[in-house]
Design a binder for these strands. Sequence first.
DNA 1: GTTAGGG
DNA 2: CCCTAAC
Length: 607
Amino acid sequence: MVFKRKLECVSVGFDYPNIPKAPRSCRRKVVNKRTDAMDLLASLAGKLLEECESSSASSNAFEVNTHENCRKEIKQEDHLKSESSDQGNSVSRTTYEKTCVVNSFSFPDDGILERTPVCETKNVKCEGVTEERGDVIVNTGFEQDGGLGADAFNLEDATALGVQFPKSVCVDGDVKSPSCLNKTPNGSLDRQGNHTKLGRDDDEKLYSYHKFSSKFKSYRSPTIRRIRKSLSSKYWKQMAKEFGHYRADVGVKALYRKRKSCYGYNAWQRETIYKRRRSPDRSSVVTSDGGLSSGSVSKLPEKRDSVKLSIKSFRIPELFIEVPESATVGSLKRTVMEAVSVLLSGGIRVGVLVHGKKIRDDKKTLSQSGISSEENLTNLGFTLEPGPSKAPLPLCSQDPLVPIDPTNLSERSAVSPTLDTETPHPDDVANPGNTVDNNHLELVPYQKEITVDEEEPSTDPRALVPLPALEVEALAIVPLNQKPKRSELAQRRTRRPFSVTEVEALVQAVEELGTGRWRDVKLRAFEDADHRTYVDLKDKWKTLVHTASISPQQRRGEPVPQELLDRVLRAYGYWSQHQGKHQGRGGGAHKDSDMNRGRAVEAGVSV
DNA sequence: GTTAGGG
DNA sequence: CCCTAAC
């Protein structure tokens, strides 16, 4: 149900503000938001795989057509075979094919492609290191030259390409431009085709993200569903881990919401397809290249003096949370969730730490900053700093390293949560398989999602960037929603079913006031019920009418006396025919007498 | 701030 | 219950 509609926006993906249809202003905002950092990170992550692929691919064939307007038509077909051995004993060998088709990429600037690499450092290595500075910490682990495999990632490439032009993501497979959807070769809308193709390999995790304009909302792709289902829980859990106690399900939900409003706001039609797989060593990787990197990779076959690193995890900054002891764990989770959300919604920046010292000069090269084989890089770290990005990620930045100004000090994100210690939150339900009442229905899908495909513990210490997290976040930032309202991340009010008594009072009030004066109804019958807003009353009335219209067998929840339902129907019918007549009139004039009169009439006519 | 509706 | 468009 609810899930179904959300299915449309299922996953994930990096969203890039290059959709033709999107108002410039919107796109701009995207960039200014979390997009900055998240795009960057996402892209970095993406490069990881790119690196992997380029290094393990037995063959690569690209075809890049450059049009005037810096439009790239990239087609890529890879048949790559990769093999590697686990650190353990088993040796896994994976063979897969890769088909990549990228249509129409727009770049704001030609120069970029030709830009020369700036990174001059040599391969360096070190094991995962954690730097803590009170900010968000990104653990980095430099890898040896040798056993990089998929975990290696070329910063140079990433920054030079993916980071700045994250047009699409390609993980081991199809690459699609967000705009592909709208621009199939024949000019027609094409959603199905690619999806279908994507689902062929069970070993791959596919993500599809749809943003539809309202007129496409009814679209339901079986393939999409499948893709959705294939979403492995471990990734969400991974995200949860990476982001502290971030609750994946809630997070997803919140994001859905956020997106939902976004979609309503802009009628975009976009699609980004992700293919995800487990790299030989079970690390999760993703590439983000927008096709551009693909082409470039072929151009820059040999990149010796590069720095390879992997970002193992992200940590959130210090969060201050205060909850009463009586609060439930679920409440605590939500609180943390909210805190994190607030943090993220406030924008984040990326900082680079070397030996615990922040490198503020974005112009410096890595080697100049002390990031090279000559140095002990165990102290290299990245920080995600809270606070609005004051230096929007320039699409054509000439700085390949850290496009985001990392100068500001971290800020604290304090949250003074309002906890409810009432009914356990649906998310607290331990067993997803359990039947839950309507209230929880909406969340069930997520629970399921999260428990599907749980076979792999994902304990690989080298786990890379929390893919899902990035994807989700990347999505979250796409928003065209100017002001990330706090409500977006606020928790939903706890459900409080109307009691028969309340229904009675409501019916009574509506009989007297009609169905168009909810504020009055509120004042009259629920004056002291602070938790009942007039909107609630209106909604309740709506459901009451519905309930009264269906057979008793179909009704759920605490049964409402038939007598009351009859009154509901009666009042409904009455006021339906007396709308303009009585509505808008001053207060209690048409009261019972009116209603009764009307009732009598109705009774005589139709009841 | 309210209303009316869709989700 | 939430979210929005329209008032």
